[in-house]
Design a binder for these strands. Structure first.
Lengths: 234, 234, 234, 234
DNA sequence: TATGAATGAGTTTTCATTCAT
DNA sequence: AATGAATGAAAACTCATTCAT
């Protein structure tokens, strides 16, 4: 956690530091990110940095577990989906995720980085915790879906992880493909957001939910025959 | 591409170099990986390395585009799925992917690294090419599925990317969860492979295919009501 | 240009660095000169060097375009030749150049290095600029000599370049011959300066000016016959 | 000196080696020149090189003291100036030097490099010997000029060195200025030679000789008043 | 004799962190 | 508390020369 001094910083100075840190960690992995760069671009002396944070990891940890989630919550606001069905709520969740990605690609990228492997044990611990929290939340959601009867009979663990991947990196890929851009272009430019209209986002969310709900199989065969017959196998 | 010299190397020496390179690039990103480390662990002088490869990128490129795919093909052997249905072939593909991951986690990790973002343009180009090739192949497969009637009406681009994520990082996560291990433990240890039996792999593959085919929705509602009605929305 | 840090350095430390850099660049070409050597001999860590200069070229550029000229000006002081004739001023200029060479051979050598060819484009640009500036100044001087009637009818470009060579590398050779030493001995030792008395310097300067003014031809034929007659040629 | 094996080499192979060595040493100083580059471009194994020459210095020495002078003599052929006056012979010498420079800039550059300072004692010895030989020759020529009455009363040592600089680096500068090119462009391209016509070369040679013979002073004052009067000084 | 390969000392440069003021 | 500077370990890469076949 940042030191006391960090929170007593003049907001302008603090914001510069945080903003530049976000830029750096969005573009580079923890190891590759350079404190020197962050300090230089934020125009704060490198020495001062160590008054605010213990070290590079301290900054990264705080960004990953506090600041980025806070900004994400601030952007997303209230869920506003009370009363909706399970699938509707899922669609809304996806849509909001896409909006966040398009409007705040750097924050989204830092969040997503938790899924990247890294050789540093400390960072791995961090990433693990974040991923686990996300999975826990999604698992709870799916459990609720099961209770509500929206979901069929599923292997909960498998479903949790597959759905997490679909609405995580999967949708990021889809959005990038829609934008016709690579991640690094999106991180660098500010005006790509307009390229994905709210209408289009809704359509993509609906199609994704349809995929999660009913899969890709043709309707007639969808549940008629078991995927691979036990007898045929035996 | 490696220089001629490399291919004329005594096999023991060459293998040491390649093996250590694989270890290093499996654990670290391109930028983080250290030639010095590779050379030291392979017990070849740093100067000698440059007899074999142009530079660090040359080694990485060769691993990524030649050696790792070659080893993967060697491991997977023939497809052996001729005559099977689309879904059966998909299940087989998934199963084989899981086997490769468990038996050769380092190779699998290097392959998968192509999906990780990186700030270096040259490396990005490499990764991009690999990802595109994978997507092209999968897209063709899905198109065939459509022709064969196995797949319903789908947005091909969306489906391609979502399926790719499911059978790529999605299944990796699932397997790691099954092993109760993190990627780095798997990369480091040789005997985790037994923890995921062929039977269990088959079961996971079947369930994954079921997910891709029919989704997670309860049978009765599966295709009865449209995911989200246009009217309900308007 | 050096960074701010450099100018705030404790003088002893800064001087050590500059002095060793001058020694190194006086003895070796830009490419051959070694930052490691400079740092080692100045007893500053290599890492510290980069607090003071952007890189090797930054140091060299500053030496060549700022520090060496500054020291040269400091040594030469005021011209003090106002009112003198063109040829007298030229003699004074030459004399002062010889004094500088003898008293500060390293600075003189670094200046002169601008005339050496080099394969590095950036360094070539630097050298070119310095040579051009020197030629411009000399050309202006000669133009004034023409206006004052001291100079006869000359090809200005040719004259500028020939005179530049005479009073540049030419005089350096002459002085070294007088000292009975090679450049590197002069660069290495501090007490050769006394070997060339002011009286001798004045004599050499006078003779050089006589050469520039009247050439080497015997008086009687000096301008009587054209250098090579058109007819004689045809 | 090269080893026996070198002279027994198939001419094509030997020529490739020599030609590439000339290219390399023309562009770079002894230290900067790279044997690896020479060997690679000449397509001879680096190991073989050491069958032909003791080391880098051996090659350089042979080029500088044997091969380049031999090629220079071959280009210049017979002097053909018997019977001409001292000044005519000098003009011819200069003209031939310019022709050599324009037609064989690489050979000329290697010759001229002997005047460049270097930190390596062995190379310094080489350069010194070459320069001294050139000066000896020129001194003898001037002595003959004195005997023939063409030259006035001169300080022989001073005159030798000043004339050497004028017709050496001085004329090179002049020619480069005429070509509107830098040395490195001339070294790299083959067709700049046409830019300096024989007629223009002759004119430059004549003007240079006029400079050496009569200096730059205006005719009326040229020898009337001593360069700087003893009285004026006192 | 030919030669491909091996090698270690060398190069410039970056970086996170500590220290002194 | 602020901060400018110091620093050493690390990085990728090049080179002339030697060695073994």
């Amino acid at each position: 956690m940042p030191k006391e001094t960090f929170f007593r910083l003049p907001p302008a100075r603090r914001d510069r530091l945080v903003d530049e840190a976000i830029v750096e960690f969005a573009e580079r992995s923890y190891v590759e990110a350079s404190l020197s760069q962050i300090a230089k671009r934020a125009r704060i002396p490198k020495g001062s940095f160590y008054q605010y944070f213990e070290d590079k990891l301290d900054l990264y940890r705080w960004l990953l577990t506090d600041e980025v989630p806070r900004r994400k919550r601030a952007f997303l606001g209230e869920d506003g989906a009370t009363g909706a069905s399970f699938w509707e709520r899922l669609a809304l969740h996806i849509e909001r995720g896409m909006a966040f990605l398009v409007e705040h690609p750097q924050l989204a990228r830092i969040s997503a980085a938790a899924a990247d492997p890294t050789a540093l044990p400390e960072v791995r611990g961090l990433h693990r915790a974040i991923c686990d929290a996300g999975l826990d939340e999604l698992r709870a959601t799916l459990e609720e879906g099961i209770r509500s009867g929206a979901l069929g009979k599923v292997n909960l663990e498998l479903a949790t992880r597959l759905v997490a991947t679909v609405i995580g990196p999967g949708l990021t890929d889809v959005v990038l493909a829609e934008l016709g851009a690579e991640l690094h272009e999106v991180l660098a430019s500010d005006d790509l957001r307009a390229r994905l209209s709210a209408r289009r986002r809704r359509a993509l969310a609906d199609q994704t939910v349809a995929f999660l709900r009913s899969g890709l199989g043709a309707p007639e065969d969808s549940l008629a025959t078991p995927p691979r017959g036990g007898k045929a196998r035996a």
